[in-house]
Computed example of a mutant assay.
Amino acid sequence: MIDDIAFRLIGVTRTPEGFDRGIEFDDLATIAETAGTSGEPRGVMLTEENLASNAIALSEASGGDGDELRLSFLPMEHLYARTCDLYTWIVRGSRLVLADSPKTVFRDAKIVRPTVINGVPYFFQKAIDLAEANGESLRSLLGGEIKRCYCGGAPLSPAVEQRFFDEGVPLFTGYGLTEASPVVTVNTPAAHKLGTVGRALPGVEVRIAEDSEVLVRGPNVMLGYWDDPAATADTLRDGWLHTGDLGELDAEGFLTITGRKKELIVLSTGKNVAPSRVEALLCASPWIEQACVVGDGEKGLRALIVPSRERLRAEVRKRRLWVFSKRGALAHAAIRALYRQEIDERLANAAPQEQVHAFTLIGRGFDRERGEMTAKLSLRRETISQRFAREIAAAR
């Protein structure tokens, strides 16, 4: 899929005239929907300059000569894929192959042999699990020619990031949001720090407000929200985009995202917890496919845990447990004990308020088609909490 903006990018990057051919740099180019993780999606108004500057800056920060082959599987309706795969491909003059579907990525990688892949945390954790199950390296799993991977959309466990580096497949994390076209910061081969989401792109400024909110300013920041002047005025203040994300900047300019303001869980003890950080630590376990943490107003956190089907099935067979259904396996004392130990180990270095006090193993994963995840596979917590209210109440 090559859209109108992609063709315009060809013009701005391939001809000296750039946008002089009847196209104004500040023209409205597209209205992109936000992910809607903490409310109704909004229409984000983005200009030619927003999108072109972001794709060009991302290409510049990534380095290299553009001699690469990208395998793309993320949904193109989301700006992450459109900018980081489609538009960046055009800016760099490289090659792009679309996977048959998200479910065939690993098969397609062995056919195409890509050098670059953009993905979300779930994909990279799944890659580790599959490589271990097949007894092969991550490099081999991804086609044998992979030079680097990029991850965005949600927090990634440092353990997953380190595992890729240890196997000679650099995995660079970044941060962004639709309102910023979307990339704000990224780790690169030239500037990388484990556990952070990298430095700001060229031409983009990042600062931390007094309440730890991440603020962004630059040519990539949106015009505003479509037909919502109140939300625009609240989000764009004094020339800065108020992202709603919480973060820290170190002395070298590397950004660490610590949570999202609207998603903070406030325990009855008064302690605040960023659920996405806890979930990233849990999902680094090969035993855990997905996790959703709740606990607002309670003494401690509760977690909905989606087990790895393959590992769970193999464990039942290995122990010769007397179970005759999936529900029986999830409720079996031996399986619960195994997951209790795994959860505790994954959170061993987390703060006391980040410990999971009770959990429930659930029989299906959170699903985009059911409205439980966004296009970039972020959790819609309110929907999940309502849909799994009985399971959350039964957590122990």
Score class of each variant (00 low, 15 high):
residue 34 T to C: 00
residue 360 T to E: 14
residue 288 I to G: 06
residue 14 R to I: 14
residue 66 G to Y: 01
residue 13 T to L: 10
residue 73 F to M: 09
residue 396 R to N: 04
residue 134 N to V: 03
residue 316 V to G: 03
residue 230 A to Y: 03
residue 386 Q to Y: 12
residue 276 S to C: 04
residue 258 T to L: 02
residue 117 I to P: 06
residue 279 E to G: 00
residue 58 L to M: 15
residue 374 T to L: 08
residue 361 L to G: 01
residue 109 A to D: 02
residue 300 G to Y: 05
residue 298 E to G: 11
residue 232 T to F: 07
residue 235 T to H: 00
residue 23 I to E: 04
residue 12 V to K: 01
residue 186 V to C: 14
residue 177 L to E: 13
residue 116 V to G: 03
residue 101 S to K: 08
residue 46 L to N: 07
residue 92 R to Q: 11
residue 244 G to S: 10
residue 103 K to R: 10
residue 128 I to A: 03
residue 231 A to N: 13
residue 58 L to Q: 02
residue 317 R to E: 07
residue 175 Y to S: 13
residue 169 V to F: 03
residue 81 A to H: 02
residue 27 D to Q: 13
residue 215 L to S: 11
residue 296 D to A: 12
residue 55 A to M: 10
residue 314 A to Y: 15
residue 134 N to F: 11
residue 85 D to Q: 00
residue 276 S to F: 08
residue 273 V to D: 00
residue 158 P to W: 02
residue 113 R to Y: 08
residue 258 T to Q: 04
residue 292 C to K: 05
residue 83 T to R: 02
residue 138 L to Y: 11
residue 273 V to S: 01
residue 308 S to R: 00
residue 340 R to T: 09
residue 275 P to R: 09
residue 333 A to H: 06
residue 382 E to A: 15
residue 126 K to F: 09
residue 295 G to I: 03
residue 252 E to W: 01
residue 245 D to N: 08
residue 3 D to V: 04
residue 63 G to I: 01
residue 300 G to I: 14
residue 346 R to D: 00
residue 261 K to Q: 06
residue 370 R to C: 09
residue 312 L to T: 00
residue 130 L to R: 03
residue 103 K to G: 12
residue 134 N to G: 12
residue 375 A to V: 11
residue 220 N to V: 10
residue 125 Q to N: 09
residue 94 S to E: 06
residue 86 L to N: 00
residue 334 A to L: 10
residue 338 L to H: 05
residue 313 R to I: 15
residue 172 F to K: 04
residue 236 L to K: 02
residue 141 L to E: 04
residue 96 L to V: 09
residue 128 I to N: 05
residue 52 A to C: 06
residue 184 V to K: 00
residue 373 M to R: 08
residue 15 T to W: 10
residue 121 P to R: 07
residue 129 D to Q: 12
residue 253 G to Q: 07
residue 149 C to N: 13
residue 290 Q to H: 01
residue 51 L to M: 02
residue 16 P to V: 08
residue 264 L to A: 01
residue 311 R to L: 15
residue 333 A to W: 01
residue 199 R to D: 07
residue 211 D to M: 07
